[in-house]
């Protein structure tokens, strides 16, 4: 499932992204299930707030971590996230 570069990305309303103190990591919670996230995965997903498209997210992360060339990794992860239903696409307007 490729990411539409013009689609706004939003975290799924039927999932919850939460910091778990006991596990010292972010997790995604959904019916009877939990996915543990790496730091980078959590950083990416936290930017999927319904206002940004893929290029925005990449730019923001590159700025934050003072690096370049994140596009492929970010896109690959977001494809997984989309496939799993953790994020949704909306047409950019």
């Amino acid at each position: 499932m490729a990411i539409e570069p013009n689609s706004v990305l939003a975290f799924s309303p039927t999932h919850r992204l939460q910091w778990e103190e006991a596990q010292q990591k972010y997790v995604i919670l959904y019916p009877e299930g939990m996915v543990e996230l790496s730091e980078s995965a959590a950083e990416i997903l936290r930017l999927c707030d319904g206002t940004r498209i893929l290029p925005d997210i990449v730019a923001e992360l590159e700025r934050k971590f003072e690096t370049t060339d994140l596009k492929d990794d970010v896109e690959e992860f977001l494809e997984v996230a989309l496939e799993n239903g953790w994020i949704r696409e909306r047409l950019h307007h």
Binding site: Q18, E20, A22, Q23, V27, L29, E32, G33, M34
Partner: peptide, 8 residues
Amino acid sequence: EMGAVQLG
């Protein structure tokens, strides 16, 4: 407090 997060 023990770390449980999913509640049935």
